[in-house]
Design a protein around this nucleic acid. Sequence first.
DNA 1: GTCTATAATGAGATAGAC
DNA 2: GTCTATCTCATTATAGAC
Lengths: 213, 213
Amino acid sequence: MALKAEARPRSKTRDRVLQVALALFNERGADRVTTAEIANAAGINEGNLYYYFQKKEQLVMALFDFFAAAMLATAETPIEDPSEPLSYTNYQRGWFKLMWDYRLFYRDGPALRGMAPRLRESLAELTGRGQQAVRRLFGLMRQHGFMRATDDDIEVLIGNLWIVSSYWMDFRLIEHGAPVAPEDLAWGFRQVERLVRPYLTERAVLMDEVPQV
Amino acid sequence: MALKAEARPRSKTRDRVLQVALALFNERGADRVTTAEIANAAGINEGNLYYYFQKKEQLVMALFDFFAAAMLATAETPIEDPSEPLSYTNYQRGWFKLMWDYRLFYRDGPALRGMAPRLRESLAELTGRGQQAVRRLFGLMRQHGFMRATDDDIEVLIGNLWIVSSYWMDFRLIEHGAPVAPEDLAWGFRQVERLVRPYLTERAVLMDEVPQV
DNA sequence: GTCTATAATGAGATAGAC
DNA sequence: GTCTATCTCATTATAGAC
């Protein structure tokens, strides 16, 4: 099981390192943060950092474990009321909160995989489970008459949803120069919503509201 | 003008370096190729490489100039017969050929921007011009009754088209492990085609054919 | 223009004292 | 568990001979 939490015993210092690393990565980009900076920001010495994480890869993987748990919780959040269209919008909101909290994994994916090659297969596994959850969700929407799409439509749609969701932050960075900010979430939310819209029935209300973060 | 060709006089060695660097980057990934390897593959000494390109960034930017020219040529290729649906499919084929020939810029974008920070603004400019060409294309399709979409629909669609086109290779790499191969082009082609399909009218034939590369 | 050196970086990683 | 000090190593970059 690739997504289990780490085995090593808990420690306040260790937790602080992870917390600080997550913040630094999220803020400045994973490729612009060195182990020295992380140790410094955590108030410990660089040598001490290596007591907890012998390789930078281990640090990244530990962060990924948190992300994986959060993503699965998000993906498998049950729809409050499947007969109420707004419930699905709320579900989508959950995804965008996740993207923001762990934006290092969305924005800096390639850089992180450079630091931690093992990340690739963990990501593949997680992606599979996340997509399965979305697949079930669309099944539910069809049942309730909110969606009209063939199985094939849905497979292609899920692929495109995943790509747009995973990379819109990097795309936005290129176009705007500035790193992605909370205000940009509405843009991404809208792009994703429009992917789904062509397959919604008249029964479904518009789902292009601005997400709360 | 950021997209002009370089000013330095031509030279066989210089051309060979660029050609070899493009091939190596395309093949192995931009972040896995060192200047030493490039010089070696070009049959010259590492010191000599720095006679032509004082910084690795200059090498990347020179490659980008080729890419930019090819991309603009692709984007602005006139539609052979705007009243013939297949012409638009051919246009899309052109894009996928470009993606393959310069896949380093699609697959290794973040790594390249790490090597050459100036790339970001050049990419932004190029993206803008490319999107403008696609915008005109959709206008043409509307004129000929192949497309039914509001201006707003088209703006969102272009954003999603750009994201899926730009990042599907990286996504595919995560899911499959293996680097993207020519066979995968059909998958990407299909994902892109399905983004557009909901806005096509009955007059437009299906455009989901497999691209030739 | 091309080569042989050799420097200069800058990061990750470790050994061993406390 | 934490620190100081040091090492390794890949890479970019330059100086100067030919």
